[in-house]
Design a protein around this nucleic acid. Structure first.
Length: 851
RNA sequence: GCCGGAAUGGCGGAAUUGGUAGACGCAGCGGACUCAAAAUCCGCCGCCGUUAAAAGCGUGUGGGUUCGAGUCCCACUUCCGGCACCA
């Protein structure tokens, strides 16, 4: 061991030690409490980015902390290895996605190891291995047989030039990313998982997820979107046939204010009208060309076209015109809505635009309608009562809904209904680099699931996609097969599964990745559920919801007992960095923040930013690290320059785990300085005679007080203040007079244990060097000594009328009266000549005198 | 557009969950050491004001509740995440 802090050798040594001891290997030890700590597995995109480092550092802090608390902690790692980027890279480099992916995995694994994470690598898995995706296929066939997986048509983006389906990401301003051709919508057959069957359970179980952030539960609740309303039929006659146009509404109380109906372009009425009239046909065509992305759909200008058809109001019998509206979604509800302009903002602007009547049917208080404002009352369910509504006048929201639903039911024109926003999960992808869907299309037997003994359907790994459709569909050796049922020639499905399928159950497979005969085995019953899951907030809805669905599907197959995969959830914030560009003749060149030099004024405010060659650069704010803005920081360089401990410390220290983290090279320097200082103190404290500003008793009290707070913060997962606590401890220790070896040793042993989950290497080395016995990673977690925290005097803040005016030290034994008198004395000049109305005492903290 | 968040010194952030706003760190300023620089160490550091103090102001904006509000309530502004084929 050298006296200088040299992270390279310290970290190499610690990592080899853990490796040789197999320190992080765990088994199903029933003598200890199990703790399954999991970070979201990475997509092997090439190299680690800071978001990964942050995610896995947070997971590692938790893992090491719980290990020291004596738990049996599993922290595995694997690869979300199928997906679009591998195909893009394949096209660019003419290398098969499999090779690109596996090379990336090898490199990123090395990077992860160099960060010193307490991972049980013996459980590593990759979703592109057939030993893994075989079980995607196996479960798919079970669900298919139960009707939980089924086929129907779905809408996709179609590039007419490349003759290929595009992901939403590959559509830029309505055009194909490679061809620039306007993208069309196309309906194709796809397989779906019937997640809606579990909608009620997925919603209800959210209440029991006490370890999840409220915001995530709320987002899931809104996404599932249970709404109670009334399904209403508007009768009409078409070609002599009596029909009903059905709509769903949560505001049946506004039924008497309906002045138009709007149907989706794909609705049968729109289709019929389009067949009769060229103008309508053109409009329907225009709607069908539009986007499939809901965010864009919600922002397009609301347009409509009258169909010339009318339906009858189910209560009044009035004729109501039917319009085609570009904002009505075929996939939600009935594909038709009733228009109540006076009480719905969207209907209101639609009616204004097309000159439709806007009759008021709800009165709120004694408020008057105003041209601009009346529609704003739409969301005030229950705030008003019906007016201009015939027999329903005077009824409140619920009474009106009940009465109207009853009347409609009597006429067979409606009933109360529950509607869900959640849609079934379409899993078919017309892509090569994914898990093949195990279906054989037989001319006589139809869609036949591949039998167990023919699984897995192996994905050929040597293909290179070219951007014109799925290469599997052009490979007879893959798709030509025989029907498993009748033996006649048949065609294998060439679509692959959505990669969300792969990531919906990988956490269960970590329990038994070597199991060849089953999706999961008994070991999964031991380890599941995941006790702590950590990942980006961007996964708050889809990934987490799909995983919750999968656990229920697996439970219903008898594979597992748990329904909720993740008991506790920590959603980590993103890693951001500043970005700068030079602007030469209107051309932006992005400059990496590391190459920007700043000039500051006397107070540290930034005056000018220039490149090292002297060109002035423009500051473009703070944002996610990205290639396009050239503001990425490479973790590899960071580790090489400062070591893994500095990288880990800075990431933990700079921001609480759930907030965004702003990168700062100076902050990294500061973290490095702290570790150096710690190292030096560890080597020299016994010789140190300079620090003599505090008594051993005060230092000891401070160490234990800081430890108490740090343990509290750990419980909240607020790790940045735990890092601060370590710094405070070192600051306190450095004030200790040289002779106080016992206090110094105790303080250091607390500091090293507290810090070891964050910077395990340096703590490992110092712990051994100082001879504390054993290894810091297996040492017991430190707890504060109550005796050290004892104080004889209490420091009270004294306020007058809520404003802080002074302090007073009161003996612990003093009674309230004494404390009040002393407080009044301390702020005499502020209360002189005024009558004291009352005095508020917060025990041990504050005295407020009201005058 | 809809759903969910966030906003505190020059900067990242802290505040025992309604009780001293700015812990800890960065940047900056002053000093020690050095021929010098780096490294290290010591001190100062919200704004305004002052010789120094006092007083005053201060947690995105505007209102409210309270003895007391960064924290609770109402209305807004800006930024960020998601919106079902990026992962």
């Amino acid at each position: 061991m050298q006296e200088r802090y040299e992270p390279r050798s310290i970290e190499d040594e610690a990592q080899s030690f853990w490796e040789s001891q197999r320190s992080f290997r765990v088994t199903e030890d029933r003598a200890k409490a199990k703790f399954y700590c999991l970070s979201m597995f990475p997509y092997p995109s090439g190299k680690l980015h800071m978001g990964h480092v942050r995610n896995y550092t947070i997971g590692d802090v938790l893992t090491r902390h719980y290990r020291m608390r004596g738990m049996n902690v599993l922290q595995p790692m694997g690869w979300d290895a199928f997906g679009l980027p591998a195909e893009n890279a394949a096209m660019a480099n003419k290398v098969p996605p499999a090779r690109w992916t596996r090379d990336n995995i090898a490199y990123m694994k090395k990077q992860l190891k160099s960060l010193g994470f307490a991972i049980d690598w013996e459980r590593e898995l990759a979703t592109c291995d057939s030993s893994y995706y075989k079980w995607n296929q196996w479960l798919f066939t079970r669900l298919f047989k139960k009707g939980l997986a089924y086929k129907k048509t779905g809408v996709v983006n179609w590039d007419p030039v490349d003759q290929t389906v595009l992901a939403n990401e590959q559509v830029i301003d309505g055009r194909g990313w490679r061809t620039g051709a306007p993208v069309e919508k196309r309906e194709i057959p796809m397989y779906f998982f019937r997640i809606t069957k579990y909608a009620e359970e997925l919603l209800g179980a959210l209440d029991g997820l006490d370890g999840w952030p409220e915001q995530v539960k709320l987002m899931q609740k809104n996404w599932i979107g249970k709404s109670e309303g009334v399904r209403i039929g508007f009768p009409y006659e078409l070609n002599g046939e009596q029909k009903n146009l059905w709509v769903f509404t949560t505001r049946a109380d506004t039924l008497m204010g309906v002045t138009f109906m709007a149907v989706a372009a794909e609705h049968p009425i729109a289709q019929y009208a389009a067949g009769k009239n060229r103008k309508i046909r053109a409009f329907v065509e225009e709607c069908r060309k539009g986007t499939v992305v809901e965010a864009e759909l919600a922002q397009i200008e609301k347009k409509g076209e009258p169909t010339g058809l009318y339906v009858k109001h189910p209560v009044s019998g009035e004729q109501i015109p039917v319009w085609v509206g570009n904002y009505v979604l075929m996939g939600y509800g009935e594909g038709a809505v009733m228009g109540v302009p006076a009480h719905d903002e969207r209907d209101f602007s639609f009616a204004l635009k097309y000159g439709l009547p806007i009759p008021q049917v709800i009165q709120v208080g004694d408020g008057k309608f105003d041209d601009r404002k009346w529609y704003a009352w739409y969301d005030e369910k229950g705030a008003g009562q019906c007016v201009n509504s015939g027999k329903y006048d005077g009824l409140g929201f619920q009474q009106a809904v009940d009465a109207i639903a009853a009347d409609l039911k009597a006429k067979n024109l409606g009933e109360k209904q529950v509607q869900w926003r959640l849609r079934d999960w379409g899993i078919s992808r017309q892509r090569y680099w994914g898990c093949p869907i195990p279906i054989v299309h037989c001319p006589s037997c139809g869609d036949v699931p591949v039998p167990d003994d023919q699984l897995p359907v192996v994905l050929p790994e040597d293909l290179v996609p070219d951007g014109t459709g799925n290469p599997l569909a052009k490979l007879p050796a893959f798709y030509e097969t025989r029907c498993p049922s009748c033996g006649k020639p048949a065609k294998r499905e060439t679509d692959t599964m959505d990669t969300f399928v792969d990531s919906s159950w990988y956490f269960a497979r970590y329990a038994c990745p070597d199991q060849p005969g089953a999706m999961v085995d008994e070991r999964a019953r031991y380890w599941m559920a995941v006790d702590q899951y950590i990942g980006g907030i961007e996964h708050a809805i889809l990934h987490l919801l799909y995983s919750r669905f999968f656990m229920r599907a697996m439970r219903d197959e008898g594979l597992l007992d748990v329904a909720e995969p993740f008991t506790n959830l920590l959603t980590q914030g993103m890693v951001l960095a500043e970005s700068y560009y030079t602007d030469a003749n209107g051309r932006r060149e992005w400059v990496n923040p590391a190459d920007v030099a700043l000039t500051r004024d006397a107070k540290g405010k930034i005056l000018v930013a220039k490149t090292k060659s002297g060109m002035e650069v423009v500051y473009d704010g703070i944002g996610t690290m990205s290639k396009s803005r050239n503001n990425g920081v490479d973790p590899q360089k960071l580790i090489e320059q400062y070591g893994a401990d500095t990288a880990r410390f800075f990431i933990i220290f700079a921001s609480p785990p759930t907030s965004t983290l702003e990168w700062s090279d100076e902050g990294v320097e500061g973290s490095y300085r702290f570790l150096k200082r710690l190292w030096n103190y560890g080597f020299t404290f016994s010789k140190n005679t300079s620090g003599s500003k505090a008594s051993a008793k005060d230092v000891r009290r401070e160490i234990h007080a800081v430890l108490k707070q740090a343990n509290y913060d750990l419980g909240k997962h607020q790790f940045n203040t735990v890092a601060s606590a370590a710094m405070k401890m070192l600051n306190a220790l450095e004030k200790l007079p040289g002779a106080e070896n016992e206090t110094a040793k105790e303080g250091l042993s607390i500091l090293l244990r507290l810090l070891s989950p964050i910077t395990p290497h340096v703590c490992h080395a110092l712990w051994r060097e100082l001879g504390f016995g054993g290894d810091v990673m297996t040492a017991p977690w430190p707890e504060p000594d109550p005796a050290a925290l004892e104080q004889d005097e209490i420091d009270y803040v004294v306020q007058v009328n809520g404003k802080t005016r002074g302090n007073v030290k009161v003996a612990k034994s003093a009674d309230q009266k004494t404390a009040e008198t002393m407080a009044a004395e301390a702020v005499k000049k502020y209360i002189d000549g005024k009558a004291i109305r009352k005095t508020i005492i917060v025990p041990g903290r504050l005295i407020n005198i009201v005058v």
